[in-house]
């Protein structure tokens, strides 16, 4: 489960949706994996404004990864004048697209419900008393 995907995921329980504490989910006993893939600069530039930057910083520090800049990088910080990808863009690619949680649990900060991640696949199905 890539760190980018985790920026789109919150607690599946309806009553948690309105509680700011439910996002981001907090990784527990997370085993990280690193998979090298091709860089997609257009996608990262397009998706960056849609991310919750604060949540990404929280997640990154909870996982003990490199600390992120205070604010979302600007277009100029991602692409050099020569059109080449900057180090900032490369770092974001590694963090968002290549780093993932292979196994562990994702915990809701509001209700404490935990979602298991196995082989990179998370399970968000709820028991009937929580639906």
């Amino acid at each position: 489960m890539k760190l980018l995907t985790l920026n789109f995921l919150t607690c599946a329980i309806k009553t948690c949706k309105s509680n700011p504490a439910s996002f981001p989910l907090h990784p527990k006993d997370a085993e990280l994996e690193q998979i090298e893939i091709d860089m997609n600069p257009i996608f990262i530039r397009n998706i960056l404004p849609r991310l919750d930057w604060v949540a990404l910083k929280t997640l990154s520090s909870e996982l003990g990864l490199a600390s992120l800049p205070e604010d979302v990088p600007t277009e100029e910080e991602l692409m050099g004048e020569d059109g080449e990808a900057t180090q900032t863009l490369k770092d974001l690619h590694v963090l968002l697209m290549e780093t993932g949680i292979a196994s562990g649990r994702l915990c809701c900060g509001a209700c404490g419900h935990e979602y298991a991640v196995k082989e990179g696949i998370a399970n968000f199905l709820l028991p009937s008393h929580l639906v």
Binding site: K2, F8, A12, I37, R50, I121, A122, N123, L126, V131
Partner: peptide, 23 residues
């Protein structure tokens, strides 16, 4: 096309874990 595939997970649309925002 592996580099374009983010993730797949188990979820139900009526109780979706997706953060509500237009992305």
């Amino acid at each position: 096309t592996s580099s374009l595939y983010l993730d797949g997970f188990a979820a139900d649309l009526t109780n979706t874990p997706l953060r509500t925002s237009r992305y």
